[in-house]
């Protein structure tokens, strides 16, 4: 019998959509900051930077909240879900999923939560998120080196130099945009092939699971 299961708790869904809109807004304003232009009557750069910084704070809060939820949320939200190779079953499903993606295996590894390949990708994405937050706020902190974020800059500047920090911040943006393409595609693919409400799950939280397939 098909079961309706509550998989994605509200903090998972909310932070997912805040993160998604942040990545888009931050990339758009970030690209503008890298290649600015004038619009008569608008302080374009000042506005772009304001939006970039305000959204950066929202993004920071969202990511921190998601990390907190990794500790207290359900099994699909837990940090354990992002390191699938810790269990024998996870390793098996990982290989199965990878083979499916590379057209060498027949079946999807059917999961209630994240599939192990996706979980691994999200681990990388969280690492990139942390990188963007740290490098971004360090660069922001340059306006007041004695301030809070300036402290971060003062630590990082001798190690990476602000220009390479800026370059990596820029390059990681492109990587995140590349991930966005991948993520949308995989969501579509899983929705079509798993037939369990992958797409609607991230809005409603519910997925339709056939326990026999697990």
């Amino acid at each position: 019998m098909l079961e309706i299961r509550y998989v994605w708790e509200w903090p998972v869904r909310i932070t997912h959509w805040i993160n998604a809109s942040s990545v888009i807004l931050l990339s758009a304003t970030g690209l503008f900051i890298a290649h600015p232009f004038a619009i008569i009557g608008v302080e374009t750069m000042a506005w772009a930077r304001l939006v970039h910084i305000v959204v950066a704070y929202a993004f920071l809060c969202s990511v921190l909240f998601r990390f907190y939820w990794m500790l207290v949320g359900n099994q699909h939200a837990s940090w354990r879900a992002f390191i699938p190779w810790l269990t024998a079953e996870g390793r098996r499903n990982f290989v199965k999923m990878l083979r499916y993606y590379t057209f060498t295996g027949k079946k999807i590894s059917y999961e209630v939560g994240h599939n192990p390949v996706a979980a691994l990708a999200y681990l990388g994405i969280f690492a990139l998120f942390i990188f963007q937050i740290v490098s971004g706020f360090a660069l922001y902190g340059q306006y007041a080196p004695e301030g809070f974020w300036g402290g971060l800059f003062v630590i990082l500047n001798p190690l990476v130099s602000s220009q390479y920090l800026r370059l990596s911040h820029h390059m990681v943006m492109w990587m995140l945009l590349g991930f966005l393409v991948n993520h949308l595609y995989s969501a579509w693919l899983m929705d079509v092939k798993e037939r369990n409400g992958t797409m609607s799950g991230i809005f409603s939280g519910y997925r339709y699971i056939e326990p026999e397939d697990l």
């Binding site: 098909l2 499916y100 027949k106 999807i108 595609y185 079509v192 056939e210």
Partner: peptide, 16 residues
């Protein structure tokens, strides 16, 4: 490209 390949793929979807 992967999408095209996947679209023509048969028998891989979960189907009870």
């Amino acid at each position: 490209a992967h999408a095209v390949g996947s679209a023509f793929r048969k028998g891989d979807a979960m189907e009870s």
